[in-house]
Design a protein around this nucleic acid. Structure first.
Lengths: 337, 337
DNA sequence: GAGTTTCACTGAACCGGATCAGCGGGACCG
DNA sequence: CGGTCCCGCTGATCCGGTTCAGTGAAACTC
């Protein structure tokens, strides 16, 4: 029942613990013959290195952490995280690294989790997501000297390496698409204003409107939930200067907006064009299928994990820019009425 | 930069390592005065117990594991996991336990992960989800002696404790609702036939149809994705004996089905009633909002985590039955045309 | 053939806590 | 006033790996 240790292997093989350690770690100092014998015995008795012992002797934790800081209720609908996680996992699994996941209620809790993980030696580093402008997590990571990679624009990442894509370019592409269709009055239903990427898209939206000669329009900020997406859409569509197209910041709000429009008797895309953000199967499942921007989220996750592992290994790393999201035109955009 | 150890505290306090250990763990053997002094020093220099050292001295890993075995692409849309995870987390966070997450490609990979985790002492136990009938994971857990809790019906859980809800009752309630509305021809778009809960719902579906005097109908099995949901729906709606209501096994297939129906010119609920399974924000966002069964998934996760922790502590535990899912009637069900 | 190098391996220290036997000293008892 | 008990603490050992200095023997060198 007790788990076998290298001492058991050493006894069986008639050698010392040290020799077993060398043999199993592929280091020089043992003959090929002995090495093979030790490997055979290890295999036979089902030996696995005890993580704690290895850790104690200075090895890394063999795990990285991800803290998700959103209300649970909303988490579920957001495909982003699961896609990100599956991308991260792909990179980790190959090296037998593990992923620690924790859901936190706010930035303070999140920081407390990092401190604990780091203090206990439970993780070798963490991936930060959903950065705010002036995010308090960044200086904490820098001060702790804890390896961390940011998924998001470098402008919010301080000295931490970032994995990002050009959101401004994607926004420009969306508006060019709408302008080409003939839209002049385009509205935007955005995510939380505090998020760094919301601010970036806000700016790009305003800038691109101007560049394309479209009417000025403010962004309506939401918490990314269907309810607020619906409410914002209702307000926009009831206003005097009703937009002919709305650009949403995620798929859930876009879906909610689509429903509201249809409920108000507006046909999509004939009466209103809708653009979602970050393609997900949801966008293809509804009628009409939603025009969205699409990018490879798992790839970003994989890249971030890769950087983090190199960083944890002591390497000096710099951020990388992923391909920008591309517009994926579907049935929800058409010329204005 | 180096993390402080109890030896550092001992030196500062002018006592031995042993005394510090006693003091910090609230065990007798030190005076209250010394204890307070040691605590103050620990606080001051930011000491945290090193996980590895504690582990090596026989303590638990302070973590539990969850392996998710579904294709990544689909994972994202399924709110189930994130809800489950947030429930588990709630229970863990209070005790400073951590959650290890891994995405696996199949049962063999999944079992390999369990073996590794257990062999390395990385987790104190695991939660199993998506049980198949005759699931290979169950005997492995039993043989390893690894604490494990199943989320699903006990009939598939072998000797492992299960957290389950009465799916048959929920199915009955759904069909009673449809029968009461006047439906006689009800179809079912199910999940993968290999899943234990699919089989249970299949049986309950057939049984309840008979009990209510509705027409016999087979279940169309899918892989839970929108595509297959759409295809199954299209086939059903094109058949000679077109059903007046369809019961889906999850929200994504229901959503896809809804779109297909609308595309084929069928009004929902006037021309076709649609029932989804496991309520999620998605169901409320679309038009019409979907009638679904709803249950408290985070609560199940929390309960499973609770059981697992007790089990890992050596307690003998038995499974618990959660409240059955309740029907939540919304706009997608109405009397048949 | 003596000296040097290389090889294969041993023994012990080490990581950071937990735990236990033991010890000095004060309090209490008879 | 001597004996016993308990409190508060020390010092050592243990957990299971890693690592390093050292060792004995064989191989090589001149």
């Amino acid at each position: 029942m007790k788990r076998p240790t290298i001492a058991d292997i050493a006894r069986r093989a008639g050698v010392s613990k040290g020799a077993v350690s060398y043999a199993l770690n592929g280091r020089p100092g043992v003959s090929e013959e002995t090495r093979a014998r030790i490997h055979a015995i290890a295999q036979e008795i089902g030996w696995r290195p005890n993580l704690a012992a290895r850790l104690l002797s200075g090895a890394g934790a063999g795990a990285i952490g991800l803290v998700v800081c959103r209300p649970a209720r909303f988490l579920g609908v957001e495909p982003f995280f699961m896609e990100l996680i599956s991308g991260i996992e792909g990179e980790l699994a190959a090296r037998s690294y593990a992923l620690m996941l924790q859901v936190a209620a706010g930035h303070e809790d999140e920081i407390a989790v990092y401190r604990r993980w780091w203090g206990e030696g439970r993780v070798d580093g963490v991936i930060l997501v959903d950065l705010h402008t002036n995010d308090p997590r960044v200086p904490v990571m820098e001060k702790l000297g804890m390896p961390a990679v940011v998924i998001g624009h470098p402008s919010a990442a301080g000295s931490l390496p970032a994995v990002w894509s050009d959101e401004a370019a994607a926004m420009r592409e969306v508006l060019e698409h709408l302008a080409a269709l003939g839209h002049r009055r385009v509205a935007r239903v955005a995510g939380p204003a505090a998020l760094a990427h919301t601010a970036i898209r806000d700016a790009a939206f305003v800038e691109s409107l101007a560049a394309l000669g479209l009417e000025e329009a403010p962004a309506a900020h939401t918490d990314h939930t269907g309810e607020q997406g619906a409410r914002a859409t209702r307000r926009l569509l009831s206003s005097r200067s009703r937009p002919t197209a709305i650009v949403y910041d995620n798929d859930v709000t876009a879906l909610a907006g689509l429903s509201v429009a249809q409920e108000m008797g507006l046909r999509v895309p004939a009466g209103l064009s809708v653009v979602a953000w970050d393609d997900s199967p949801l966008c293809q499942v509804v009628r009409p299928p939603l025009t969205t921007t699409a990018r490879d989220i798992p790839a970003s996750g994989a890249r971030a994990a890769q950087l983090l592992l190199r960083m944890a290994a002591g390497e000096q790393v710099t951020g990388v820019e992923d391909a920008a999201a591309r517009l994926r035109p579907r049935g929800s955009t058409a010329p204005p009425p």
